[in-house]
Design a protein around this nucleic acid. Structure first.
Lengths: 173, 173
DNA sequence: CAACAAATCTCAGTATACTGCGGACTGCCC
DNA sequence: GGGCAGTCCGCAGTATACTGAGATTTGTTG
């Protein structure tokens, strides 16, 4: 089992001038995509009691830290697209975890707040979220975990503006 | 500009026992999600001439290395969900980059091949793909890039089975 | 041959993520 | 006070990613 399938055994020379190009495992984008898939899978598993996705949890914790925020602010805080935040909040509202109302000063805005249940669930989920993090990083030593977090943080920080959801910059601590 | 918004300034104490929990920037899952967003944005930008997504490109290179593969094999090679590979191939086929036909021995299968144009585009895209990789990793020194690739590879390898698309293991070389 | 299990693929439904467009509202300038 | 640019939000459409159910084909077994 797990036999590593010798794909470069004899079938490779394929179509044209040597089929291979770079292996997927040497492409950062591939590793990032796979890591994201794995993270989501582990998170959903650990948080299955709450039927809540990583993005929904991110929005709920953003609301814990910034209640009554409008959607643009929430999108920046959580690193989520401006259109998508609207969908996410709608789903959370449908489940009774979030309340949305028109802004009092500026009626273009719709400000959001956690309901009592949303607040409770957001706090309850913390340990499940920590378990998911621990499971994701478990294969690495403590030292390597720190290295990885630092490298990813550096990269996200520096490339922030390339995505449509440029997330508020890392707090300066 | 980019004023780092002191969100923990005075508005925090929010609802219950201190609003903050862990900062998003300390959560590996958040960084992985953001890194994925950024990677996709950069890739789409660099490859805008080809109107081709990272996943579509991954499938095309998998087909370069393994022409005539069935969908399960392709899904494993490219680390893509079994349902999703079907959609991706359909879109590629619609654009005339891929041909699908029923398997000759086993008619449950649908084997895929790049068309001549698909082959050409897949090869043409290599340098754009390399530019995207370079841009994504540019903020890091060469040494840090190697570290990051190694750490991500280790993590994906070890956690492979947690996602629904467990990707063929890293080739042993 | 008929029944059954397994493999491959498809379809319906949901969630994230983005583009592009338009509507509603605000604040500013003339 | 009337336009006008800019902001906030929503809708339509597309792509990835997954769950769960079902259809088709294959191979095995009674």
């Amino acid at each position: 089992m797990t036999e590593t399938k010798p794909k470069t055994g004899g079938s490779s020379t394929s179509t044209g001038s040597g089929g291979s190009l770079t292996s997927l495992w040497e492409r950062p984008g591939y590793l990032v995509r796979r890591l994201h898939q794995i993270h989501v899978a582990i998170f959903l598993d650990e948080c299955s009691d709450y039927a809540t996705t990583p993005v929904q949890y991110a929005v709920m914790t953003a609301l814990l830290n910034n209640p009554g925020a409008d959607q643009v602010t929430l999108a920046n805080d959580a690193g989520i697209d401006r259109t998508n935040i609207s969908d996410v909040l709608a789903r959370l509202a449908e489940r009774g975890l979030v309340k949305r109302e028109a802004g009092k000063q500026d009626r273009r805005m719709r400000v959001a707040n956690l309901t009592q249940e949303g607040d409770r669930i957001a706090r309850d989920m913390e340990h499940a979220s920590l378990s998911a993090q621990a499971r994701l990083m478990a294969p690495l030593s403590a030292e390597k975990r720190d290295q990885l977090m630092s490298l990813m943080g550096e990269l996200v920080d520096a490339n922030n503006e390339f995505s449509r959801a440029p997330a508020r910059k890392r707090p300066a601590d």
